[in-house]
């Protein structure tokens, strides 16, 4: 009746990271809400994309090897005119380094929401894949109001996760914004669970921040890490 010493997965140090665009495409395919975004190769394409989406927009430099855009100044927020977009896109392409590989410009609507959440998947050495929900976006680690559940989540598990956050006031009506749509947030958590359950190569997912717009959580940034083929 004793179980094997460690039936769970072995943590590998070699991990492949999907680009933001690929990460978002993957999570969106499972039901996570992501902003309406366009990929542009040049500054002119970036302007056309912004015109199509409507201003203001965000421009980000994306590439398969770029994981921490904010730290490198590769995110330009609140661009209000085509001129702003053209300048930003030109700057971003200039900031690309050879090791970044093939880069593109991601143009996304500038989503406005006072509340930022964080959600993700973590592969625990003992308990395997877990879904996380927390409060705070970039402040998540300091606020430390986070909840974990093991994959697979049932619908009731997802609802209970949201209920288990301490910051319930933040999930209600807040400074003129409607309450967080709990079923939409639960659907996000269930999407993460389904993704981790079906794709065993997933080591982690970060949706950070999840900005609450009209009550719905949008993954403004996404990062998916995969165990590379030779290590699992």
């Amino acid at each position: 009746m004793r179980t094997p010493e460690r039936a769970g997965s072995v943590r590998s140090s070699v991990v492949a990271t999907l680009s933001e665009t690929e990460s978002k495409r993957l999570v969106a395919a499972h039901g996570v809400l992501v902003p309406d975004e366009r990929v542009a190769a040049t500054a002119l394409e970036a302007v056309a994309a912004a015109d199509a989406i409507g201003y203001p927009v965000v421009a980000k430099l994306c590439g398969p090897a770029i994981a921490h855009k904010t730290e490198r100044g590769l995110v330009r927020l609140n661009l209000r005119t085509s001129h702003d977009v053209e300048t930003a896109a030109t700057d971003l392409l200039y900031a690309a380094r050879p090791e970044d590989g093939d880069v593109t410009i991601l143009i996304a609507p500038m989503l406005a929401g006072l509340r930022e959440l964080i959600a993700g998947v973590h592969t625990d050495a003992q308990f395997g894949p877990c879904v996380m929900l927390g409060v705070g976006g970039v402040l998540a680690e300091a606020i430390a109001d986070v909840v974990f559940r093991l994959v697979p989540l049932t619908e009731i598990d997802a609802v209970e996760m949201i209920d288990a956050l301490d910051s319930q006031l933040l999930l209600g009506e807040f400074r003129g914004e409607p309450a967080v749509d709990r079923s939409a947030l639960a659907a996000t958590l269930l999407a993460l669970s389904a993704l981790a359950e079906t794709d065993k190569s997933i080591r982690s997912i970060d949706l950070n921040p999840l900005i609450v717009v009209d009550g719905k959580p949008f993954a403004v940034d996404a990062l998916v890490e995969l165990a590379s083929a030779e290590t699992t």
Binding site: A119, C130, R149, L223
Partner: peptide, 23 residues
Amino acid sequence: LAAASHTGALATDDRIFDGMCAQ
């Protein structure tokens, strides 16, 4: 272990055990 992801940084053993118990 040192984690690249924010989710990983928040994933303490105790939080995961606590979540398992609640679930």
